[in-house]
């Protein structure tokens, strides 16, 4: 009897015990830094000694917004464009692997293979690829398909291309998962009910892929907007994103309050945007599809 009660107690506690490591991890390494960062944005720090003290200075926020508005706009624009490109490019790939391919795992691996290479190395190789006399532009210029003074590197286009390339798997995989889960009989049923291929795609496939599209958007747009490496390597000097500003403030100017305020603003903008987006697309989500 005694033993049985012990087992029951263990069962009741099991979920908490199993969740504890993750909760502690998140608490220490996510929540604490987050709160620290938020409070830093309200402090004043000595730029030499780095000693900070709380002065409840909310003025940092509007100041940073007005000063770096173009960087914010560029971040949203670059990440948004890259996300749209990624959705357009990876939907057909994901669709093909989910519905047509015979060796799904092989093609998924092919899709992911480039991403076994480091992020930095991949981005630098795009620098070579897009350089004025590189493989791509050099060849096209030699063939006189492009004017001699044409260049991509150090433009917004290069940054968008880099982000789109680097975050492609984060778009393709959620799309694949949601498409793969569609019961082929449901598509047969649509055809049976007089839906042509196109109508079945629009009325059944796409709506059923919405949770995947939403996840793909989140996983591409959010890290894309916070990214600084692509702008730094491919964007030249005049196409900086907000990530570059934050990085500079933290690591070059040691202006912790400004950097913290910028990070908090970026996070706030994203959360508001995502909440609005979820209202439109994501409200009909997961539980319906299980």
């Amino acid at each position: 009897m005694e033993r049985r009660r012990g087992t029951r107690k263990g069962k009741r506690l099991a979920p908490y015990l199993l969740g504890a490591p993750a909760a502690i991890w998140l608490g220490v390494f996510f929540l604490v830094p987050l709160v620290t960062m938020m409070s830093l944005s309200l402090q004043r720090c000595d730029s030499v000694t780095l000693a900070c003290r709380m002065i409840w200075h909310f003025g940092e926020f509007p100041e940073q917004v007005s000063q770096f508005r173009p960087f914010f706009m560029r971040s949203l624009y670059y990440a948004g464009s890259a996300t749209v490109i990624d959705l357009l490019v990876s939907f057909p790939i994901a669709y093909w692997i989910a519905f047509r391919a015979k060796r799904k795992n092989f093609f998924l691996l092919m899709l992911l293979l480039p991403f076994f290479v480091s992020f930095v190395i991949r981005t630098i190789s795009w620098q070579f690829l897009l350089s004025d006399q590189g493989i791509l532009l050099g060849t096209l210029k030699n063939l006189h398909l492009l004017p001699e003074n044409f260049h991509v590197l150090a433009t917004g286009t290069a940054v968008i291309a880099g982000i789109a390339y680097n975050f492609l798997p984060f778009t393709a995989l959620p799309l694949y998962v949601s498409l793969e889960r569609i019961d082929p009989h449901v598509l047969e049923a649509a055809h049976d009910l007089y839906a042509s291929r196109r109508a079945a795609f629009a009325k059944v496939t796409i709506p059923l892929a919405v949770p995947g599209i939403f996840a793909a958007f989140l996983l591409t747009f959010v890290p894309g907007a916070g990214d600084y490496l692509n702008a730094q390597i491919l964007g030249g000097t005049s196409n900086g994103m907000i990530g570059n500003v934050i990085q500079n403030k933290f690591l070059v100017f040691f202006d912790y309050p400004a950097a913290s305020a910028l990070s908090a603003i970026l996070m706030g903008v994203m959360l508001i945007g995502i909440a609005a987006y979820a209202k439109v697309l994501g409200s009909r989500t997961i539980e319906e599809y299980i």
Partner: peptide, 13 residues
């Protein structure tokens, strides 16, 4: 013709 499928194949959305 219309079909009633074994798995019903209703549109879940």
């Amino acid at each position: 013709v219309n079909t009633v499928f074994q798995s019903y194949a209703l549109f879940p959305h």
